[in-house]
Structure formats: C-alpha cells, structure tokens
Design a binder for these strands. Structure first.
Lengths: 333, 333
DNA sequence: CTGAAAGCGCTAACAA
DNA sequence: TTGTTAGCGCTTTCAG
C-alpha cells in the first residue's frame, strides 16, 4: 500500500469535517448525524485508515492488548491455555502479549511490570508464589484473572480446578483397587496446586487408615527426566510401591516412560492431567482429567467480561475434575 | 508504589537539567558529562522512573516488542519455538506479541497487519501459503525472519530444515529394511515443508525402482484423529502397506496411537518430528529429528541481529536433519 | 451536532 | 555539552 499511513487529519480533510468528528465516528460515538458519519466512513474506506493503536494508547492510557504471564509457554498445559486465550481475545479485537516466569517470582514481578508499562487492557496470570501481595500495589484497577493458583488472595478473580478432590479421588481409587503402598510424585515448589493435590493424597490415605510412608513421596519431580529417575529409585528400594499417583502430567510423562522401558507395566498408575498417547499405551493411563481448554475459556471470558466493565465481586471459579479409568489405575497389587 | 508514574519532566526538575538531557541519559547517549549523568541517574532511581514505552513508540515509530505469527500456539512445535524466542527476546529487553493464523492465509495477513500497527521492532513468521508476496508491500524495511517456509521469496531471511532430505532419508531407511509398500501420511495443505518431504519420499521410491502407489498416500492427516482413522483404513485395504512414513508429528501421534490400539505394532514406522513418549513405546518410534529448539534459536538470533542493524544479504539457514533409529523403523516386512 | 486547541510522554532539530 | 521548541496521532475539555 502507501508508505505512510493515513491519519485522522487525512480523513478529516477528505471528508470535510474536523478531526474530532472523525475520532467520534471511528470510535462509534452516537453523537454524530447519519450524513456526516457516512461521509467520514467513505473517506476512511478510501484512505484505508486504521486507528493508530500506539497513539490511542498513549492518549487513553489503555490499549487493545492483553497480557498473559505463565510459567513456560512450552508447557503443554500453558500453551493450550494461551492458545485459547489468544483465540478469544482476537475475536474481540485484542492482541496477546506473553511472558514466561520460569517459576521465578522475581521474574514474574518483572513480567507483570512490563505488561503494566505496556498499558495492557487486562492481565491473565498464573502466579508462582503464595505471596501475590505485590499485585495489590502494582495493579491498580487493571482487570486481572489469576489462573490455577492464588486462592488465598481475596479480591481477585481466579480460575482453577478441584486440586484437593482430585488428589483424594486418585488416591482413593488406587486404595479401592487394593493398594496400600502408593507413591506420590510431585514438585517441591510452593505451588498451591501441588500442595492441595498432595493433601488430598494424605487425607485419602488417612481416611483409609493407611499410614503415611515418607519413603514413597518424591517432591522433586519438576521435569520428566527427574520423574523417570525417581520412579526407578522408588521401584528398586527395599519396600517398593505397588502404585503411583503422579500429580502433574510432566512428571507422569517421565514416570510412565521409565515404567515402560523397565518393563514394569504391572505398577498401577494414575496421572493428574492428561498427556499425549496416555490412552494408546498398554495399559492405557488412568487420569484425573484437567483439560486446559475449559479452564482457559473460563479465565479468558472472565477477563474479557471484566474488561468490558463487569464490576461484580471477585469470583473464584473452581472447575470440577473427573477420574477417567483407562486401565493403569485399575491394576491390582 | 505511587499512583502516577514519573515522567521525564519529574526527573528533569529533580535533577535540575532539561528533559532532553534526561532523555539522553536514559537512552545511553554519550554526549553527556559524567556529572550530569550521575545527577540524572540519581533522580531516576529516586523517582523510580521508567521510560514510557508507548510514548517512546509513538515518537520513534519503533518499539520494544517483537511479533511472532504461527499456525497455532498449542502446536508443540510452535509452542517450543515461541518459548525459545520469548526467552531470547526477554534477554535483550523485548516483549513478545503472539498471533495464530489457524492456517488461514487471510487471518495470517490480518495478524501481520496488527503487528505492523503495533510498531513491532521485528517479526517472526511461519507463512501458510506459497504466496507471501503481500509481505513485500506491507513490511517495508521491518526486520523479518520466515520460519520453516517461504524459501521461494528471495529477499527474506529464512530458517528451516532439510525437508526433502528428511523425506528421502526416512523412505530410503524403510526401503533398506526390505519394505516395498510404504505409506505416506501428510496434509493436503500447500505447505512447502510437507510438499518437500513428500517429494523426498517420491524420489527415494523412484531411485529404488519402486513404483508409486497412490493408494498408499494420504494427504488429509492434518490432525491426530484423522491420521488415526487413515492408518486403520490403510491397514484394512486390499493390499496394505508394511511400513508408514508420517511426515509430521501430529499425524504420527494419531497413527501410532491407532497402531497400538489395533495391536499392529508389527508395522514399521518413521516419523518426521519427535513427540512425547516416542522413545518409551515398544517398539520405540524411529524419527527424523526436527528439534524445534535449534530452529528457534537460529531464527530468534537472526531476527535480533537484524534488529540490531545487521544489514547483510538475506540468509537461508537450513538446519541438517538426522535419522534416529529406535526400533520402529527397523522392523522387517 | 460539531470544531479549535491542548496535551498524553517522549525524542529530534536546531540553537546556544 | 546542554536547552528550547515542535510534534508523533490521538482524544478530550470547552465553546459554538
């Protein structure tokens, strides 16, 4: 096209009105007569005028961009989440700015600051620590939704799943199938999700009268290879588990991989969160379903509602989870 | 912190210099005496001044944001790519704006337009059609790198892998292991990558004197479930294949899943592109390695170089591929 | 219903 | 080496 873009002045000149009127028409103000509106729109079409979002943002202090800050974009859960959010955002004319935290609280703060400086119109954040209090100071009245964590901070909209119930259900399921020695794979991080899943595990054991055995608990499985190693160590220890509850899909991937390579497909297994090929393995992997899509949809819609001016009290949206039996969770000891 | 952010004026007032000097210091101009620089930096620190990127962008026509436009953020290949790019960009102080095309050329154009309007400082694009000529008109002298496709348009930096060689190597490998009836799984889309992989397949067959059998070629496998169905159909047809070459990991996921569920792990299999658990299955899946990380690193670095002013001729970076034998590709007919 | 003029925060000419 | 002035493109008082 042309090398320099048309401005409100060009449109005003061509349509014989003032720039203010152009602005009104472009922004859909009703305070404009039909005839002038038509004139302006003609000029807009002819010149291919598009509002300059930068200038708009400088002037108004807002923008047509929303920020999404998550642990890692390459994590399947978050990439699915970001994908849905981008889709919904685009439909409403918003772009998406992404930022990863690498689980580093300092970097998380930095990313949020960046977003604020960019005047994002809304923010979706998967916080890393229990201490989100900095958000109160920084965020002003920016529409914001916390994903998956952050329950303890009142005043923020949150979306997540029933972590405790999920952990409880998974453990109870294995107990019902006769297991007494059930290993737990998780992360050491102070992630609330994992903490809750683990306390579900604890409670299920307690309710069944099974004493907790610390030697069956691994809290260092943040990446698949570590989980693989941990699995092998668990199985070769003196009094090995007969079942494994893995509290996140990344750990499951590593653990299942190790089980298959070691030929130990006799070990019962339940994963919190699905993963590719989980249903193609033999035995297929039973899971606590934590589909990212509904979570993303709920979070995105809540944020867009807030951005559209919805001003009710903060909502804590908790999505239910279900246990999907596929075989691995129904293996007897 | 404070409710309104400090501006150059605040800093200027506090340090007793003009706003221009503040601007100079903030932007690292050398035309400033050490003493004044120190004064200004003190004031900056005291006020917590941060340059307003919006105003900066409006004035300069550039920004500290780079755009990344890909098929889909949730696709494992692209999410890994975006992740690496974001990491590198962040290290240089840039944010990342994402846009998905859903393989729709119109939407691709729209996303690129959006990015341009946002004054992105650079653009990473995985184009969808053979016709990228619109980029010539739109993009001006914006630093831009095309990922994975777009070879035919001279004048652009591109990064990709040896698609033809990969297709050839995979097919040749299966031929060497005695197969004559080798199925091809691909997508109908005019994606150059797939086209090249397929012509590698054709050439390998031709060089081995094996006639092409159209009944073994499926070009509708854009999603895993379709590939799963296609696989079952291939295996139940009158003269079934004894080996499968799947030209993208999504199709492989579906196909492998179907093979396992049908108990047909006797079929030889090579996948172009790795996927989770590929090495944990029995047999483990042989692959043509197409690791997104080196591709992303090359693309990101090339883009950042361009943004830093590198002005050499357009480079076509083609990364080598290797065949990784894991078992499934070495099964005899 | 419409317009003139000011200014968001910054950087670029041009002087001094 | 430093400061003054203008203006990026837009929206917004405040008049008309």
């Amino acid at each position: 096209m042309s090398t320099t873009r048309a401005t409100v002045y060009d449109v005003a000149r061509l349509s014989g009105v003032s720039i203010k009127t152009v602005s009104r028409v472009v922004n859909g103000s009703l305070q404009v007569s039909e005839t002038t509106r038509a004139k302006v729109l003609d000029a807009v079409a002819e010149l291919g005028y598009v509002r300059n979002p930068i200038a708009h943002s400088l002037r108004t202090g807002s923008s047509d961009t929303i920020g999404v800050v998550v642990d890692s974009i390459s994590d399947h859960f978050f990439s699915a989440l970001v994908s849905v959010v981008e889709e919904r955002a685009l439909a409403k004319g918003f772009s998406v700015l992404i930022g990863s935290t690498g689980r580093d609280p300092g970097r998380e703060r930095g990313q949020v600051q960046r977003m604020l400086q960019q005047n994002v119109a809304g923010l979706l954040l998967a916080p890393n620590t229990s201490d989100h209090s900095y958000l109160l100071g920084t965020a002003g009245d920016l529409p914001m939704v916390l994903i998956d964590r952050g329950w303890e901070l009142p005043g923020f909209d949150t979306v997540g799943v029933q972590d405790h119930s999920g952990g409880y259900a998974a453990t109870q399921h294995l107990l019902r199938h006769g297991h007494r020695r059930i290993a737990f794979l998780g992360e050491d991080i102070r992630l609330e999700t994992i903490t809750h899943r683990r306390s579900g595990y604890h409670d299920a054991l307690a309710d069944a009268g099974v004493p907790l055995d610390e030697s069956l608990i691994r809290t260092d499985c943040s990446e698949a290879p570590i989980a693989a190693l941990a699995t092998l160590e668990l199985l070769t220890q003196p009094n090995p588990p007969t079942a494994i509850f893995s509290s996140n899909p990344r750990a499951s991937l590593g653990s299942v991989s190790a089980l298959h390579r070691a030929g130990r497909t006799d070990v019962a297994f339940v994963s919190f969160g699905d993963f590719d090929l989980a249903d193609a393995l033999s035995p297929a992997i039973s899971i606590i379903d934590q589909d990212p899509t509904p979570i993303a949809v709920a979070a995105a819609d809540r944020l867009l509602d807030r951005m559209a001016g919805e001003s009710g009290p903060a909502q804590q949206i908790v999505l239910p989870i279900t246990l999907i039996e596929r075989g691995s969770g129904e293996i007897a000891p």
